[in-house]
Design a protein around this nucleic acid. Structure first.
Length: 874
DNA sequence: AGGCTCACG
DNA sequence: ACGTACGTGAGCCTC
């Protein structure tokens, strides 16, 4: 007969070990995975190294065990299992099922006892046994047939306890481990032992006397007075402790060795779970075939001439480019896919093909795209008008979970377990090695992308339906993508001369400031280096550092402002910083971004922020200076692109606080907005308990800060920093505010509770953000998630509203047959360019459309202005 | 590549 | 006891 190789794992102990050994990993679905990950890594190694014929994972069953009858305090004082770990147990169980690994638990017994009983049985029939745990107590089971593996620091680092190793390490036999525990106790299990006896003393006694029983028989020989006294006084406790530490090897288990036979995992199930948990490295490890296997060959037809019959009513479409900036990148070709065909259309063929152009602009021909905004904007540059986008992979997956960071087709589809698309890097190379491959390779790559979209769209659309987010996706984000593509393509005319003039002035001022600063400092240094500046200010000049950063002294503006009265250099540095920022980011930065058409074409990222806002890149036109006059002048460079035209800007007044009023249903807040009150003044009246005429500008400023704080998810610390007051005063402020606006107070606690219950929060249009850390036992992580729970519905709903307004505004301009063009969105503001004769109409329709975008229980209010540059729209 | 700083809503 | 206000992007410095 062949010898069995039996592996017995202590499930709870290993899960705990993994949990505390690894950082608290969270996957995109908000599930903590570190314990499952560590456990699985360890398991995988064991399966490979030990090749067991039989295997079992034993679990502790419930709270009480037979040991509690002996000693009620057994395992007392233990921290409650962190929720981040508890939530992982179901996944562990599922994973083990997929591995076809039997699991067993027994009421009133611990995993140790199950393992002990089975190892004894296995020992008896001569099998080779490996016991694996994170708990050294189990080393008592080591024998000629049984090796005990104890995990060290990481999960894969293992210490193997044979009887020889136990002897070598402790100088005792495995069966004496319980005597050792009896004497020294075990804090983690709350086993008392004998006071004053630690590992050293316990081992000394055991090496000399062999067992607790013999220690007590020889008590007279123990001359150390204190030790003798402790032993004498705690005899019963010592025996009880030994008893508690003794693993039961005759537990009434209902499994036998034969039940543990192991035939290997169900790879399909394992793969599914790995995917669900996003275990990338493990996926590759267990399915090296899948990772390394050449992709399944596909047949892509490179078309020389496109015919009507090639183009069907529904097709996936992907515009292949090598660079991510689709506003400047060269189009390498267009791929199409449906049930029957995969086509690759070289750009020149596409541009000449009437059937293709007709199909492309036909809204009845439904297009399933990877990124419809990139597709339509890039095609528009080639004079190709694309309409009828029915699916957008990027947007759809963003709506399902805005926290996901993937933006490329290979990664996104990979998340759905589809691995037939190569990473762009593999095809094009990176860095200096980046190069255009052959047309065949491009066609294959682009074809795979189209095919992936074709195969996956239904599954993703179903997710959107399940989440009740299909409308948000299909009626809001998808139409918005087309509008944004137009805005990006249109661009904003930017006057180079204006920027250059401001730049020259700035450079002169900077040069003067630089000289002054060097003179005062007594040496030249890099003012832009926080490190060098820190040395000058806090070491050479000897100013008192107020705040530290990870790497040294903080020299941030709020710190320097506090030091302004201490030394004349500070104001010059602040000034230098401010002007330097304007010069490098806004003058030099923007000049580099002006295209040949004299315009700046930003790109709006529609699938990036976690709240639903847009972001703007290359360059960012959402952070052009406005607060300080010197910076605001930059806005004079943004001008209409046609002679006789104007820029028209409209912004929502207090949209976030209005959203808060609506969502919280706070009566006073609603009433204030309905009455058209100045909300910060009104807040000041309530918080300070004064009438309107008595509100000072400082009171209003403080009230404004509180209102901002409320929107951000208030914290006393944050408010105290902002207002430069004590935390106590800030807390008092918040308290007063929340008693004044009880509806807001209720809303804030409700939304946090809801986030805890559901794991996510939603906006007015059902945008969703998952907040897994809201149940964290880590104060910082949890607090952050709580503030996010308060902020995201507000910021996100405001984003929903302006997005809807943009769609309705675009429609309205079209219906009215106007020439006005939408250019920019800056979170609560829309900027248009318009011929002079349309301005009157805009004054009417822009507020009308924006204010009625979504009906709230408070009115929305829009302010507008127009002028010959962005600077003048104030 | 990551940290710091600072521009915006 | 914990030590941050929410959401972004870009330039510069440092390693």
């Amino acid at each position: 007969m062949t010898t069995k190789k039996i592996v017995l794992l202590d499930g709870n102990s290993l899960a705990y070990r993994a949990f505390f050994a690894l950082p608290l990993l969270t996957n995109d679905n908000g599930i903590h995975t570190n314990a499952v990950y560590g456990f699985t890594m360890m398991l995988q190694n064991i399966l490979e190294d030990e090749k067991p014929t039989h295997i079992l994972v034993a679990w502790d069953a419930g709270k009480t065990t037979f040991r509690h009858k002996t000693y009620g305090e057994y395992k007392g004082g233990r921290q409650k299992t962190p929720p981040e770990l508890s939530e992982q147990f179901p996944y562990l169980r599922k994973l083990l099922e997929a591995y076809n690994i039997p699991q067993y638990e027994l009421d009133q017994y611990e995993a140790d006892d199950i393992i002990g009983t089975l190892s004894k049985a296995g020992d008896a029939d001569g099998s080779e046994i490996v016991v694996i745990s994170g708990d050294k107590d189990l080393t008592q089971l080591a024998s000629s047939h049984t090796t005990v593996f104890i995990t060290r620091k990481g999960m894969t680092d293992i210490e193997k306890y044979t009887p020889e190793h136990v002897m070598e390490k402790y100088g005792i036999e495995p069966h004496q481990i319980i005597d050792m525990k009896g004497l020294m106790g075990d804090a983690s299990d709350n086993i008392p032992g004998v006071p004053g006896v630690g590992e050293k003393t316990a081992l000394k006694l055991l090496i000399e006397y062999g067992s607790i029983e013999n220690v007590y028989k020889s008590l007279a020989k123990i001359t150390a007075k204190k030790l003798n006294q402790n032993l004498t006084e705690n005899e019963a406790q010592a025996f009880m402790s030994k008893d508690l530490a003794t693993i039961e090897v005759n537990a009434p288990i209902t499994v036998n060795i034969n039940d543990l036979a192991y035939d290997g995992p169900d790879m399909d199930q394992v793969t599914t779970i790995y995917r669900e948990l996003k275990f990338k490295t493990l996926l590759e490890k267990i399915t090296p075939q899948a990772a390394e296997e050449p992709k399944e060959a596909i047949e892509v037809t490179i078309v020389a001439e496109l015919l009507d019959k090639d183009l069907s009513d529904e097709m996936a479409i992907h515009v292949e480019m090598m660079d991510e900036n689709y506003l400047t990148a060269e189009i390498l070709g267009i791929s199409l896919a449906d049930e029957k065909n995969i086509l690759f259309i070289p750009l020149e063929v596409a541009k000449k093909s009437t059937p293709f152009k007709n199909w492309l602009q036909n809204t009845d021909k439904l297009k399933y795209s990877s990124d419809s905004k990139a597709a339509s904007a890039s095609l528009a540059r080639q004079g190709l008008d694309a309409e009828g986008f029915q699916f957008d992979l990027l947007l759809a997956t963003y709506i399902v979970n805005p926290s996901t960071t993937y933006t490329d087709v290979a990664s996104i589809t990979g998340e759905f377990g589809y691995t037939e698309v190569e990473q762009d890097e593999v095809i094009y190379g990176k860095g200096a090695k980046k190069a255009i491959p052959t047309e065949e390779i491009i066609a294959d790559h682009a074809g795979r992308k189209a095919l992936a979209i074709w195969k996956l769209h239904a599954e993703i659309e179903e997710k959107l339906q399940d989440n009740d987010q299909y409308d948000l996706y299909h009626e809001l984000e998808l139409p918005l993508a087309a509008i944004l593509a137009k805005m990006e393509t249109t661009g904003v005319k930017t006057d180079r001369e204006t920027l250059l003039t401001i730049g020259t002035e700035l450079s002169a001022k900077l040069a003067t400031l630089e000289t002054t600063i060097y003179e005062i400092a007594g040496e030249k240094f890099n003012i832009n280096s926080p490190k060098q500046l820190g040395v000058i200010l806090f070491e050479k000049i000897g100013l008192t550092p107020i705040k530290k950063t990870k790497t040294g002294y903080s020299t941030a503006a709020d710190v320097l402002e506090k030091l302004e009265s201490e030394h004349e250099i500070i104001s010059h540095i602040l000034n230098y910083r401010q002007l330097g920022k304007l010069n490098s980011t806004y003058i030099e930065g923007l000049l580099k971004e002006i295209h040949e058409d004299g315009k700046i074409h930003t790109r709006f990222q529609q699938a990036l922020t976690t709240t639903g806002r847009l972001s703007s890149i290359n360059p960012n036109l959402q952070n052009i200076p406005v607060r300080l006059e010197e910076g605001r002048k930059i806005r004079a460079a943004f001008v209409p692109s046609e002679p006789g035209w104007y820029l028209f800007a409209a912004d929502y007044s207090q949209i976030e606080l209005r959203v808060l009023a609506h969502m919280s249903q706070d009566e006073k807040l609603i009433e204030a907005f309905r009455a058209g009150a100045d909300i910060h003044t009104k807040t000041a009246m309530d918080v300070f308990g004064v009438d309107e005429d008595s509100v000072t500008s400082d009171m209003r400023r403080a009230a404004k800060a509180v209102n901002f704080g409320i929107v951000y998810g208030i914290s006393d610390y944050g408010l105290s920093q902002n207002l430069d007051i004590t935390r106590k005063d800030a807390a008092q402020f918040i308290d007063t505010y929340l008693s004044s606006f009880p509806g807001v107070k209720q809303y804030m606690s409700d939304i946090v509770a809801e986030a805890k219950r559901k794991g996510y929060v939603t906006t007015l249009m059902n945008r969703r953000r998952y907040l897994p850390e809201i149940t964290s036992s880590n104060f910082n992580l949890r607090s952050f998630a709580e503030r996010t729970a308060m902020n995201t519905p507000i910021q996100g709903s405001a984003a929903d509203i302006i997005k809807k307004a943009m769609i309705e505004m675009a429609n309205r301009l079209e219906v009215e047959g106007m020439q006005t063009r939408m250019l920019l969105q800056v979170h609560d503001e829309l900027i248009f360019e318009a011929p002079q004769e349309e301005i009157e109409k805009l004054k009417e329709i822009v507020p009308e459309v924006m204010e009625s975008a979504l009906a709230l229980d408070v009115p929305l209010k829009v302010d507008w202005a127009f002028g010959l540059s962005w600077y003048e729209t104030k």
